[in-house]
Nucleic acid binder design. Structure first.
Lengths: 93, 93
DNA sequence: ACTGTATTTAGTTATTTAGCTAAATAACGA
DNA sequence: TCGTTATTTAGCTAAATAACTAAATACAGT
């Protein structure tokens, strides 16, 4: 699992962004409306999530539509489970 | 999943500590031997892991034997999977 | 070309974090 | 009790992080 993913997940705002994007893709501003922080602050969070490859932005006119990289997130989670040798619920002897 | 767990996992040294303890319990010094950092530095990492309840120290004479709280780690992982709605490998439709 | 809207970049500040050395605490053996 | 060993606490510094405001960029519509 990429080192950057752990850092990305360490912040509650970024975790909430991921949860929001889990449901549907959203523009930067639409995402920002869910938080108290300013847009520049949110923008920085987006870039950290982008660097960890957890989200992806797509320019659509003047908007940037962000969507979750589901596969990357899932691989990251499984990788973390493997790393600590944790088995999924119900798969224990 | 407890907020402190994310912070605890964000540091590579602490992740390695958890991996070492997954294999067998170890004293603080024994753990410290696996790293370049000084013992006080490692001690601080232990306390962060203790606060997240991921490890537990047991005084044994002059030693402190640390062991992994397997259940807490597992619950944390599953909680994280749930939070992002990630299903275990092989359980996808 | 000009205006308005969406988003990011730059620059600053305050807080947190991880590292170090030196000192304190705790337990043991002589 | 004294000296030794194991570990933590205290105090400091440097680097990283998250927040803000103001300015820059990018694009659409007129």
């Amino acid at each position: 699992m990429a080192v950057k993913v752990y850092k990305a997940l360490a912040d509650p705002t970024r975790r909430k962004i991921l949860q929001l994007l889990r449901q549907k893709e959203m523009s930067a501003g639409e995402l920002a409306d869910h938080f108290e922080s300013t847009k520049p602050t949110l923008s920085r969070h987006f870039s950290i999530l982008r660097e960890a490859d957890l989200i992806q932005g797509n320019k659509q006119g003047t908007y940037i539509i962000y969507r979750l990289n589901v596969t990357v997130l899932e691989e990251a989670m499984w990788g973390m489970m493997d790393m600590f040798n944790v088995k999924p619920r119900g798969e224990n002897e």
